[in-house]
């Protein structure tokens, strides 16, 4: 494995937009569009981990699927290693698919129930044909050991494994094509806490071992803090704040980020009393009738009249710290 070069950007996503046609009324009713991901940009350096966090329906999973080209993007570019992944076709696409693999949330629906574990892990190699057939079994053996499963377990069917073991099979499958980028879509949220820690440690171990880059989707800030180099917070299809881990956790600038962080439960009584819970009343706006101004304005405790009028752009207020809020300026002070 080559040592990851720190200034080397592996994935550069520009102005990615995903929209879904929604039919309202009868067959002849006109189509409207739901913008699940609305003009987001981010980049990940080789060997690093970027987390996208946000609540359900914020578009984080859709963004991840669009990056892996499993959902069709409406606009934007996904530059992978300097090539636009979204423009590739046929043989080039297949070659590029080997570089981007996915780990899924639900270990129960992500494994084909009629196929033995070894075949599940071997399948990407068969589809992509990057490795000659006789060498494939050796790769599968190696992967089973790498993710902490016994080689004898290859003969078993998915229902004979526990949730954590199934997730290990999913990880082994994602590693089979020697990818550079692995997109982890809430890889541990379906597991219990003890197993969560094992899987997260395994992911970190594999990252250093194979020089992997992760795009990590999560709603669990504790998990994110453990895993990630930088974090993008999404709300209603937009990135509202993007910073490295330390500045985001120590100095959250967007009111939504502050509210999210204040909601992290703590067993430490002192810490619990020290943090002020920021409550955000109400519901997110209707995704089919988004407000003209800031999408968070109707729930924001610091909202001003200007917030209702125009959308705040994502601007860099401190080195490496971007935020989309009218009330944050170069001094990088939270409006709360």
């Amino acid at each position: 494995m080559t040592e990851p070069r720190n200034d080397d950007v592996l994935l550069d996503v520009e102005n990615l937009t995903v929209r879904f046609a929604v039919k309202r009324g009868s067959t002849f009713g006109h189509k409207s569009y739901l913008y699940a991901v609305d003009d987001i940009s981010f980049a990940i350096k080789r060997g690093e981990t970027l987390a996208i966090v946000g609540e359900s329906g914020s578009g984080k999973t859709t963004a991840a699927l669009a990056v892996a080209r499993l959902v069709e993007a409406y606009q934007g570019k996904v530059n992978l290693d300097g090539e636009d992944f979204l423009q590739l076709e046929d043989a080039d696409l297949r070659k590029a698919r080997a570089k981007v693999q996915f780990i899924f949330q639900d270990p129960y629906s992500s494994l084909n129930p009629r196929v033995r574990a070894e075949k599940i892990v071997r399948e990407p190699l068969e589809s992509l044909q990057t490795v000659p057939a006789p060498e494939r079994q050796a790769i599968v053996d190696k992967l089973f050991t790498a993710v902490g499963l016994h080689p004898e377990q290859q003969r078993l069917f998915p229902h004979q494994f526990s949730g954590g073991q199934r997730q290990r099979i999913g990880i082994a499958r994602a590693l089979a094509t020697q990818p550079e980028l692995i997109i982890c879509d809430e890889p541990v949220s379906a597991l219990d806490v003890a197993v969560q820690a094992q899987i997260l440690n395994l992911l970190r171990k594999l990252q250093t071992e194979f020089g992997l880059t992760y795009l990590f989707i999560s709603h669990d800030l504790g998990v994110v803090q453990h895993m990630c180099d930088s974090i993008a917070v999404m709300y209603m299809g937009k990135i509202v704040e993007h910073a490295d881990r330390l500045s985001l956790f120590n100095n959250p600038l967007h009111p939504y980020t502050s509210a999210l962080l204040s909601a992290v439960p703590s067993v430490d009584k002192k810490r619990r009393e020290a943090t002020k819970r920021i409550l955000i009343p109400g519901d997110p706006p209707d995704p089919l009738a988004l407000p003209k101004g800031c999408r968070f304005a109707n729930r924001c405790p610091a909202a001003q009249p200007q917030c209702e009028d125009s959308q705040p752009p994502l601007t860099e207020v401190a080195p490496g710290h971007k935020v989309a809020c009218h009330l944050v300026d170069e001094k990088a002070v939270s409006p709360l």
């Binding site: 892996a68 698919r97 899924f104 599940i120 990407p124 992509l128 094509t177």
Partner: peptide, 26 residues
């Protein structure tokens, strides 16, 4: 819509393979 079908798609399975080798047996 199940994730194992998405997983096969992510690893470059053709539509024919998805239809007759992955979905149909299930």
């Amino acid at each position: 819509e199940l994730e194992y079908v998405t997983a096969s798609r992510a690893s470059g399975a053709s539509n024919g393979k998805l239809m007759f080798r992955i979905i149909l047996p299930n």
